[in-house]
Amino acid sequence: MTFVAPTGLTLAFLSGLYRYCTLQGLAFLPVYTWVGLWTSCFMMIMGLRGSSKYIRYCTRFTDEVFNGLLSVNFLYEACVSLRRNFLLADPMNLSMPFVSLSIALGTFWSTARVIAIEKTRFFTPKIRNAFKDFGPVAVIIAFSGINQLQSINKFGVPTLIVPSVFELASGREFLVPFLTVPNNIRLQCALPAVLLTSLFFMDQNISARVVNREENGLKKGAAYNVDMMALGLITGGKYTKLNEHRQHVDNATYISIFLQFYQYLECLGCAEQLYNP
């Protein structure tokens, strides 16, 4: 699920939606597809009407609270995951939690240092930039490598579990069977879609504002959403593909179709921006 969600906040929304679906005894994916379709529809309407001018009411007050929330969210996730190791460990043997803690702090520290190289006077600007661009990934790879060493590996630090097919059981069609949703539910999906639209709208525009403090059009808004849908489908493809290799060719076709669609919408966005500077 985290691979679908661009930010932790969308994830929060999704888990809320998932919970609601479970309570109502609805299949989550078709409902989610409808929410996505409604959202994309709303986003396009908003984009075409140039609604992002309203984002000016979102001043620094809201910006900074929102950013603070994102920041707190990251720190919280990290701390929860490290704390869990301590809670689950045998009280007489806390090596694994502490090794995990050092790996986490080591990654944190090295990433910060490797990015700070850009501000030092070492080497040439080009090399410093390369450090900044590729450093964080190199740090991740290095620490994963260290974890593979015999001396560290014996502590059994937990590694990522590649999502196996939990609910997209084998043999699921590549396209979500969204036509199975009853008509009244389809309409009701518009309501969460309004919420999701506002989340995307704010997420998108606030990040755009943060990037260069300029109130721009919703240009990427519409595309952002399609990007999200495409990504959702790619992720869906990942799940399917993990299970059945023969579907792979079909998936690739679908993905490229969606990427083209995505590009097409970005063209639309550009045109819109020209009309609505």
Partner: peptide, 21 residues
């Protein structure tokens, strides 16, 4: 990805959270 320890992910999260501040 199965080679990627979860603490490394936590470390990256810590960094991102700090950087956003």
């Amino acid at each position: 990805l199965t080679c990627l320890p979860i603490p490394v992910v936590s470390g990256v999260f810590l960094y991102l959270g700090r950087k956003l501040m």
